[in-house]
Every structure is written in structure tokens, then in C-alpha cells.
């Protein structure tokens, strides 16, 4: 599913050095589980995002393996420590090989 996938991420714009910040991410994706059947009784093939990662200046914050039991439009909330100013990079990996990414700058004062 390459169309209509839109990542949305909430990261504070500024933080103090070493502060713990909360990050919220959402990506629009139907997360077809592979368990559902269509009107004719045929199984609708699985099509999900199977992996999500968040990195800050190249260092990993969280790496999630997703299974079909994750709801439509996968949402994640987690905490991160920011030692310096830099960039968060968020990456989602689709079953069909597509990779969606977005990044957010944060300034440490």
C-alpha cells in the first residue's frame, strides 16, 4: 500500500540537555491483518507495516517489531533522552518493501 500513507510525529521543539521528552507518532496505514475475508470468502492478503524505528543523531531510541495485531493507523508513544541538539529520524517499513520516513529537529538550550 503505497498510497495515502502519511506519517505524523509530535516532538517538542526545544528541551533542556539530558531531559526526557515524550514522542508521539502516528502513520496512516490500513494494517490488513491477513485474517479477514472479503465478500466472496477469499482471504484478503496481509499488508502491514512490520517495523518502526526511531533514532536520534544516529543512535537508536526504540525499534518496534509490529505484528498483524497492531491496530489500523499504528500509533506509538515513548520517551527519549536528548543529550544535545539534533534530529530525530523516524522510519516505518512496509510489507511491500516501501519505507516511509520523516524527521524532526530539536534544539537543546
Amino acid at each position: 500500500m503505497a498510497s495515502g500513507v502519511k506519517p505524523r510525529v509530535k516532538v517538542p521543539k526545544t528541551a533542556a540537555a539530558g531531559e526526557t521528552i515524550t514522542i508521539k507518532t502516528l502513520i496512516s496505514h490500513k494494517m490488513e491483518s491477513g485474517q479477514r475475508k472479503d465478500d466472496d470468502g477469499n482471504i484478503i492478503p496481509r499488508s502491514i507495516i512490520n517495523r518502526f524505528t526511531a533514532d536520534f543523531n544516529g543512535e537508536n531510541v526504540i525499534d518496534v517489531t509490529l505484528e498483524p495485531a497492531i491496530s489500523t493507523n499504528p500509533y506509538f508513544q515513548f520517551d527519549a533522552v536528548v543529550p544535545e541538539s539534533g534530529e530525530f529520524k523516524f522510519t516505518w517499513y512496509d510489507d511491500d518493501g516501501d519505507v516511509y520516513d520523516t524527521s524532526k529537529e530539536i534544539t537543546v538550550s
Binding site: 526504540i62 497492531i70 491496530s71
Partner: peptide
């Protein structure tokens, strides 16, 4: 789901929505 926490993860916690 499986969450792997990296060196910059603060609280080792996460929230999501499941089926």
C-alpha cells in the same frame, strides 16, 4: 509487538493500540 529499547530510550516504556 516487540519493543527494543535503544541507548537513548528514557523510561523503557511505550504505548500503542492493538487488536
Amino acid at each position: 509487538a516487540t519493543f527494543n529499547f535503544g541507548p537513548l530510550s528514557a523510561s523503557r516504556g511505550a504505548s500503542t493500540r492493538i487488536r
